[in-house]
Design a protein around this nucleic acid. Structure first.
Length: 460
RNA sequence: GUGGUUGUAGCUCAGCUGGUUAGAGCACCAGAUUGUGGUUCUGGGGGUCGUCGGUUCGAACCCGAUCAUCCACCCCA
């Protein structure tokens, strides 16, 4: 045994063949639905200029960006004075001197960069989807990794609420296609929360309020009460906020109530109006399987959201949200392109994977590498097998040949381990007669027939 | 960054209050008279007990440090 440590870096994973099939299946379904709605594929580099990323994710976020060390003699570029004052000037200064690239932290900021950089070549509204890994130097724990995939779709360059409705339809179609038996799409609007903050007179501490509120799901009503109190909010403020946020009325009625609540408050009224539009739109084009929920406590951490916000939860499993999204009015502003509104969603592939595994929703056929193994009885038979394999593959049957004329027992075991359901018995007799034996591993039954009969039996 | 958990074979773990050559199950490899597997039986390979140091006649076990891991918090997907 080798003594050197063989492992992957903390928070990263290998994906073996079986896992890859399932992951590709999920990615494939998501991409196909995105395409169906007219979204175009986009990839951006794994690394961005560090200056593109810093400052976009807040103080905490900056610390979680993986920096890439400059190539070459990066230390020699530091002047003696710089070197002497490193301790006092701190990490930020050193980082700026020895690193100018970093791994992307999400797909949204690189997308914004892309849009601004190529603004003259893009047809607006620009609809794109992007399925790529992102990296965060976070401490790994359950369901949280340092390298993970995001599956984003965004449309920029239009404030139309039709897109909100469309993105909800995409949630619905993807998750229904994947076979989830039930899930809730929760909707809220930042303007409602913003309006509420205005009514309560806590605009200055809005972000802090949202962070506390967002935990409702996790720590419950009392927990949030306590949290908000600790964050310095008045008892009366919290009470008033909860009165409207946790009002149990169903959607249309609740919207009416909100409308009354926000009379005289422009921000809140706008939020209600937007929500009502989306609600009406989705009523006229009903969803396949999703339960649409108006959830006023939904806040979502990302502070660039300005309008609608979404979150999706699967039914029947203990799992956080599996999708998210929302409208952001000024994402490209940070790169100098003002007034471009965008709205986007993201599927959490890892969590969807876990949900599907738990609910056993992956198609059986995904775990099979090949449909058929052609046995090997010797060189002459194997060459004949090579020809047969081509015919079988042309008929759409995933076929492989056992590499050597080993014991039949080993050949069977190989097929069993790889989950190959059929074996083609190909010895001297078969080569001479053109009548082959097809053994079904699951049933143990064997039929004999010519190549056409074999093909139709497998495809049955 | 903060708090806790756990490190023994490829995997899951056992190893009584420190006592000779550290075990089990699964996995792996080879056989049970060479054209039919999954079962069963027999045999086999594989661990300097995370690492370094200390206490002791003697350490997988006690102490310290260090690294890694998982979980929770902050934040997030």
């Amino acid at each position: 045994m080798s003594k050197i440590q063989v492992s992957v870096p903390k928070g990263t994973r290998d994906f073996g063949p079986e896992v890859m099939r399932k992951r590709n299946y999920i990615f494939g379904v998501i991409a196909a639905v995105y395409e169906k709605f007219g979204y175009q594929p986009l990839e951006t580099p794994s690394m961005e200029l560090l200056s593109t990323l810093t400052g976009k994710y807040g103080e905490e976020g900056d610390k979680l960006i993986f920096k890439i060390l400059n190539n070459g003699a990066y230390l020699s570029k530091l002047s003696p004075e710089d070197l002497a004052s490193l301790k006092e000037r701190g990490e930020k200064f050193l980082t700026s001197k020895i690193s100018e690239k970093a791994l992307r932290y999400d797909l949204t900021v690189p997308f914004a960069r892309f849009v601004v950089q190529h603004r003259n070549d893009i047809v607006f509204p620009f609809k794109r989807y992007q399925i790529q890994p992102v990296w965060r130097a976070d401490n790994p724990q359950r369901g949280r990794y340092r390298e993970f995939y995001q599956c984003d779709a965004d449309v920029v360059g239009s404030p139309s609420l039709l897109y909100e409705a469309e993105l909800v339809q995409i949630f619905d179609e993807v998750l229904d296609t994947l076979g989830l038996p039930g899930f809730s799409i929760k909707i809220n609007n930042r303007k409602i929360l913003g309006g509420l903050a205005e009514v309560l007179g806590i605009e200055d501490r809005f972000a802090s309020f949202l962070i506390g509120l967002d935990k409702l799901d996790k720590i419950g009503e009392d927990g949030v009460r306590k949290e908000l109190t600790e964050r310095g909010f008045e008892e009366g403020t919290i009470h008033k906020a909860f009165e409207i946020l946790l009002d149990p009325a169903a959607a249309p009625q609740k919207l009416d109530e909100l409308q009354a609540f926000f009379s005289g408050n422009a921000t809140g009224s706008k939020g209600v109006e937007e929500l009502r539009f989306i609600w009406t739109a989705l009523e006229s084009a009903p969803l396949r399987k999703a339960t649409l929920e108006l959830d006023l406590s939904l806040a979502r951490g990302l502070d660039y959201y300005t309008g609608a916000i979404f979150e999706v939860k699967a039914h029947g499993v203990q799992m956080g949200s599996i999708c998210g999204g929302g409208r952001y009015d000024n994402l490209t502003g940070i790169f100098g392109l003002e007034g471009v509104s965008g709205v986007g969603i993201s599927f959490g592939a890892d969590r969807i994977y876990d949900v599907m595994e738990e609910l056993k929703l992956f198609p059986q056929a995904l775990s099979r590498s090949s449909d058929l193994l052609i046995t090997n009885f010797g060189e002459k038979e194997a060459l004949h097998g090579l020809q047969l394999a081509q015919e079988l593959r042309a008929a759409g049957i995933k076929t492989e040949i056992y590499p050597e004329a080993g014991k039949l027992k080993k050949q069977f075991e190989y097929a069993t381990k790889k989950g190959i359901p059929y074996l083609l018995m190909l010895g001297e007799n078969e080569v001479n007669t053109g009548i082959y034996g097809l053994k079904n591993q699951l049933s143990g039954e064997q039929i004999n027939g010519n190549i056409q009969q074999i093909i139709s039996e497998i495809k049955k």
